[in-house]
């Protein structure tokens, strides 16, 4: 059952990419959840959709874009979206969360306009929305590998600062931690991870892979470090089993991955509430 993933290159790359995002999404997810930014991940994933739609639209008219993986345009949009969210959070100082619905609806609205302008790429779009087992080429995989390494190294290097900022922003600032630049780095990382993960899980479900494993890990962990461990284990289990079942049963992997995550979460909740 697993062997088939090694027989075909395209499946092998999907599998490896799955392994990487099963690591990356829950890692960044821990910080997203403790900083109460889960909804921001959602807004950014919708902006990614806008970028993808834009790229697909361009691809119909300009040859250069036809050959490009639309995910890169999606990432560019997500990164700019994350910077705009920051600006808006600053503008609405006392209603920070307003930034999220603004960006989210603007993203979908513009995305829908792009999609209808270039009607006729519905099958492609379906796999961007819900993920695909076969979407990854060798070049894509190498990009995923490179970006994963960069993100993992950044998270490792800035672990203690991000931890402090998440726990107690005021104290972190007092101790001299450069809040602004770290926060900017953080949301850019989130945008990149969304772009990477959505190739497997799909735009609509990408934030689930960042938050559900963490939601479960939070119930189990006794320390901040343990939370990472549990979140990554749950993330990997769900991505791998999701990919296998999706391939063999011809389902969208995003759906399976989220279903498995939800099942794990329910088990954890049932188990921990008895204690």
């Amino acid at each position: 059952m697993i062997e088939v993933f090694f027989q075909y290159d395209f499946l092998r790359y999907s599998l490896f990419t799955g392994l990487l995002i099963g690591l990356l999404a829950p890692l960044i997810g821990v910080f997203i959840v403790v900083r109460r930014l889960s909804l921001m991940a959602d807004a950014l994933s919708h902006i990614t959709l806008t970028g993808i739609a834009f790229s697909l639209l361009l691809g119909r008219h300009i040859n250069f874009f036809a050959g490009m993986n639309p995910v890169y345009m999606g990432m560019i949009f997500a990164v700019s979206g994350s910077v705009m969210i920051e600006k808006l959070r600053h503008t609405y100082r006392f209603y920070k969360e307003l930034a999220i619905p603004i960006i989210l609806s603007a993203g979908i609205g513009i995305g829908v306009v792009f999609i209808s302008l270039a009607d006729g790429f519905t099958t492609d779009l379906f796999s961007y929305l819900f993920g695909s087992v076969v979407a990854i080429s060798r070049t894509d995989f190498i990009v995923v590998l490179l970006l994963t390494s960069v993100v993992a190294i950044l998270l490792f290097l800035f672990y203690k600062e991000l931890f402090f900022l998440s726990f107690d922003e005021e104290q972190a600032v007092i101790s001299g931690i450069p809040r602004r630049s770290l926060h900017l780095m953080f949301i850019v990382i989130v945008a990149v991870v969304i772009g990477l993960s959505m190739q497997i899980v799909g735009i609509l479900l990408v934030s689930a892979l960042m938050t559900l494993p963490v939601a479960a890990a939070m119930r189990l962990a006794g320390s901040f470090k343990q939370m990472f461990l549990y979140a990554v284990i749950i993330g990997e289990v769900s991505v791998l089993s999701g990919l296998f079942t999706a391939f063999h049963m011809d389902l969208a992997p995003g759906g399976m991955i989220v279903v498995i995550n939800v099942v794990i979460l329910l088990f954890v909740l049932a188990f921990t509430s008895k204690k």
Binding site: K160, F163, F164, A172, G222, S223, F224
Partner: peptide
């Protein structure tokens, strides 16, 4: 927030 006393006090060292 799932942090231990040790982890919290460590923060004071970060700067």
């Amino acid at each position: 927030f799932p942090a231990t006393v040790f982890e919290v006090v460590s923060m004071g060292m970060y700067g």
